[in-house]
């Protein structure tokens, strides 16, 4: 891990080349090419079943990389799994904090599994909780937290290991608008303070427009459009030429076309998303 410093400066934090993954006959990710610059907030958008979560699972080493290449800060996700995991902070889509522990204990568990030395563990856990504004609630059981607080706690769990690449899979799903803003404010504050790269997937186009430096629109396993939200919108406006100001949602609709319902994700994903939403909300 001696080489993560220089690469992090201005280089690419994450590179995917021709990443492909199939579940049986279904090609969930079908030749994904992606390059995330160090220090940016990159949004991966797409309809249900576009392959976002599968791509994230390949990048986070949860799934193997059967075809193509994934490099996280220069480390190959297929061969150097441990090195990649040490560089990643991952917040899955589902609820991942343990309700039977206090906030502090939840974060301390992740400090332990990331080999934080005993003498700095308490300080590091306190700083991670401070970064997401949970210092006062730290010793309450996580089961008493509100949806937004749970998300922030999960963020603290991911931050405690000082990751260079933060992967957030639908961080604001099922949250009310105020909690969503709060989660994003904390993501941005931490990113500004630590300079880490953030890769986020979301369904909320307004969020992507507001908070992401660059976005990639994914559909049927591939990137169909890539750029800053402004550039994508301007591009669509020029192509339409009717003077109306398109939103990112229009760009999304333009890219995904009408076939949105054709392959709207597995039943299991829907069930999981709903359950997450109901538990968080």
């Amino acid at each position: 891990m001696s080489d993560d410093g220089p690469i992090a400066e201005g280089g690419a934090a994450l590179v995917c080349n021709g990443l492909a993954y199939s579940f049986g006959e279904t090609r969930a990710v079908d030749g994904l090419d992606l390059s995330v610059t160090a220090g940016e907030v990159f949004g991966l958008l797409g309809p249900n079943g576009a392959g976002k979560t599968t791509a994230i699972r390949c990048i986070t080493t949860l799934l193997p990389v059967p075809a193509g290449m994934v490099r996280v800060l220069g480390h190959d996700a297929a061969r150097e799994r441990m090195a990649v995991r040490r560089l990643l902070g991952y917040v899955p889509q589902q609820l991942s904090a343990d309700a039977a522990l206090t906030g502090r204990e939840n974060v301390a568990l992740f400090a332990r599994v990331f080999d934080v030395a005993r003498r700095e563990r308490a300080d590091r856990v306190a700083q991670a909780l401070e970064a997401v504004d949970l210092t006062e609630a730290a010793d309450r059981m996580a089961s008493t937290y509100s949806g937004g607080m749970v998300r922030r706690l999960e963020l603290a769990q991911a931050l405690v290991s000082a990751p260079r690449l933060l992967m957030l899979d639908e961080p604001t799903i099922g949250l009310d608008p105020i909690a969503r803003t709060s989660v994003w404010d904390h993501i941005n504050a931490v990113r500004a303070a630590t300079g880490m790269t953030v890769l986020v997937t979301t369904h909320y186009m307004d969020e992507a427009d507001q908070y992401c430096g660059r976005v990639a629109l994914m559909h049927r396993g591939r990137i169909r459009a890539l750029g800053t939200p402004e550039a994508l919108k301007a591009d669509l406006r020029d192509r339409r030429g009717d003077g109306a100001k398109p939103t990112l949602e229009d760009v999304f609709r333009d890219v995904a076309g009408s076939g949105l319902d054709a392959q709207g994700g597995e039943f299991r994903d829907v069930r999981r998303t709903r359950r997450t939403a109901s538990r968080v909300g």
Binding site: D115, D123, E130, A162, A193
Partner: peptide, 9 residues
């Protein structure tokens, strides 16, 4: 006061 969050363990 987030200095520790910059240093990987």
């Amino acid at each position: 006061g987030l200095d520790l969050l910059l240093v990987p363990p």
